[in-house]
């Protein structure tokens, strides 16, 4: 029986302007490329709303943004970032550099310090010096440049795996050898796929589909192998020197 007293006074409704839509995103920087990935499931509570709602967006030919958290805020945030990048293009006749986009995102997030965008952002792409870069943000704009980062529902499953496999944490190199500082593209893609299949297995909010954006720096030797990769689609916007590809994979739908 419900508490009878609770029926006596009116029920207080407080509108909650936020919700969580699940999913996970991940980005890894290589020496001359970056991979930015996200699953495509969108959910609320125990309901799957759709099996295909992209969380990863190409901003320019050298910048890709992944957004995770409250989907409505995420889509609005991407929209606003893109608008600012367009204004920049009109003013300066070139694309904004990656580190500048990162700072822009910080100020845009912090502008909403007291009514935050409930979104975890990971920005990946190619720096002006041609190096692969990943910037990760919290919802109010704290950010740093890293080599890899996972965020979202399965962050706690994926991040320690990346510590181990990307940063070689808790692994001692054999005598007179050292761990590689950067992994090649094919190893990174394999790790991304493994991370997401693992997360799909153990987290109910992760699954359905996987979208991996690959941003290649000028003259990256992996270009040919990506063009030959079945299922890889080139989405480079202009005749820029950086090239952007999407690779799509199925994930379990249960």
């Amino acid at each position: 029986m419900p508490d009878m007293n609770s029926l006596a006074h009116p029920q207080q409704h407080q509108f909650n302007p936020y919700t969580e839509n699940g999913g996970t995103i991940l980005a890894i920087a290589g020496e001359d490329f970056t991979v930015i990935a996200g699953d495509t499931r969108q959910s609320e509570g125990y309901s799957i709303q759709t099996r295909y709602a992209p969380k990863v967006f190409r901003l320019t030919d050298k910048a890709v943004l992944a957004v995770n958290g409250f989907a409505a805020d995420g889509n609005m945030f991407v929209k606003k970032v893109r608008q600012r990048l367009e204004w920049y293009r009109h003013a300066h006749a070139k694309d904004m550099p990656l580190r500048a986009i990162a700072r822009l995102i910080q100020t845009m997030l912090y502008a909403r310090r007291f009514f935050p965008f409930y979104v975890y952002n990971i920005l990946g792409g190619i720096e002006e010096d041609g190096s692969g870069a990943v910037y990760s943000f919290d919802p109010v704009g704290s950010y740093e440049r890293e080599a890899c980062r996972a965020a979202g529902a399965a962050q706690s499953l994926v991040q320690p795996f990346l510590d181990n496999q990307i940063y070689f944490k808790n692994q001692t190199p054999a005598q007179d050898t050292s761990h590689p500082v950067h992994l090649p593209l094919h190893s990174v893609l394999a790790l991304v796929i493994d991370s997401f299949t693992g997360a799909t297995e153990r987290h109910i909010e992760v699954g359905d589909g996987l979208e991996m954006y690959v941003v290649l720096a000028r003259g990256n030797p992996a270009l040919q192998s990506l063009q030959d990769l079945p299922g890889a689609e080139e989405v480079t916007g202009t005749q820029a020197e950086e090239r952007v590809f999407v690779i799509r994979r199925d994930l379990k739908k249960d």
Binding site: L157, F161, Q165, G198
Partner: peptide, 11 residues
Amino acid sequence: SSKLFGMAEGL
């Protein structure tokens, strides 16, 4: 436990 699940599922 959630981190262990992620690690074990991967390794």
